[in-house]
């Protein structure tokens, strides 16, 4: 084996799909090896589910019952009201884990290693996004299962379920790209999960846990115009079998997800390409 006879590895960009698949596999392997981060994605919403339903539900339910679940009362009504919000929160929580792993890659040498290799340039990040989307879906199934176990009964038909899957996938992709960027933008691994925390607050400042009509003026204005309100309303409407869901809300939710996703992708791409001082 000499330098003269050595053949170079395949050229970059030749196999982008293979590279994304490789990075995706790495991401899943990491999730299996370090289950703490994944578990955190599921445990957060589960704790909130129990807390909100069993502690606050009796009182809050009275406030949401009339519009949301006619006939249902108190705790049951509140469970129906917040399960969709917790599904959205689950997706956002998964964003925290991707922000942390992106920051870990950037802080360790491995991202620099990837950048000096002839691999498809987007594969390191898109493999991570893909892995997070899969983890999000798994977490969603668990959280929804827990809600059903304590009495939640979705009214969705097959078309609603498909639409719901589409909206949640879109949201997961959008949040993952945004959070990859937030992770790459963080100064350290320790601070990487701070920025996504703000995203976790947004459902509370929207239609996530109480109807926006009950909020005071300026807060209500914000709640009505921020992205999570139409997203949560869409998820809630689809789970309720389309009751009270109008096309404009769905359109707003989709447009917000696309905007967040595209902005997050472009930001993440430029952060990845940015020269990091060595």
């Amino acid at each position: 084996m000499t330098a003269i006879t050595v053949t170079a590895p395949a050229r970059a960009g030749g196999k982008p799909l293979a590279d994304v698949r490789t990075m995706f596999r790495r991401n899943l392997l990491r999730a299996v090896r370090y289950p703490g981060l994944t578990l955190f994605v599921v445990v957060g919403p589960l704790v909130m589910l129990l807390l909100f339903v069993y502690i606050f539900g009796g009182a809050f339910g009275a406030g949401v019952a009339p519009g949301v679940a006619p006939g249902a009362e108190g705790r049951a009504a509140y469970l129906t009201y917040i399960t969709p919000s917790l599904l959205v929160l689950t997706v956002v929580g998964a964003g925290q884990s991707i922000a942390i792993s992106a920051a870990m890659d950037a802080a360790g040498g491995i991202m620099a290693r990837f950048k000096t290799m002839a691999i498809s340039p987007g594969s390191a990040l898109s493999g991570q996004v893909l892995g997070t989307v899969v983890q999000s879906i798994a977490a969603l199934v668990l959280v929804l299962g827990a809600a059903v176990a304590i009495g939640y009964r979705p009214q969705a038909d097959a078309v609603d379920w498909l639409a719901l899957l589409g909206v949640l996938l879109l949201l997961a992709v959008a949040i993952s790209w945004l959070c990859v960027a937030l992770g790459l933008n963080a100064r350290s691994v320790e601070t990487a999960s701070n920025a996504p925390l703000i995203l976790l607050l947004l459902p509370f400042l929207g239609s996530g846990f109480v109807p926006v009509e009950t909020m005071p003026g300026p807060v209500r204005w914000f709640a009505e115009h921020q992205p999570f309100t139409p997203i949560i309303d869409t998820v809630r409407g689809l789970l309720a079998g389309g009751v009270g869901l109008d096309g404009a809300t769905v359109a707003k939710a989709v447009v917000w997800c696309v905007l967040i996703g595209v902005a997050g992708y472009l930001w993440a791409r430029s952060l990845y390409r940015r020269e990091r001082r060595v």
Binding site: R26, L29, R30, R33, Y34, G108, G109, I110, A112, R113
Partner: peptide, 8 residues
């Protein structure tokens, strides 16, 4: 900086 994946 050692460029290995510690989790793998």
């Amino acid at each position: 900086i050692t460029a290995v994946d510690d989790l793998l």
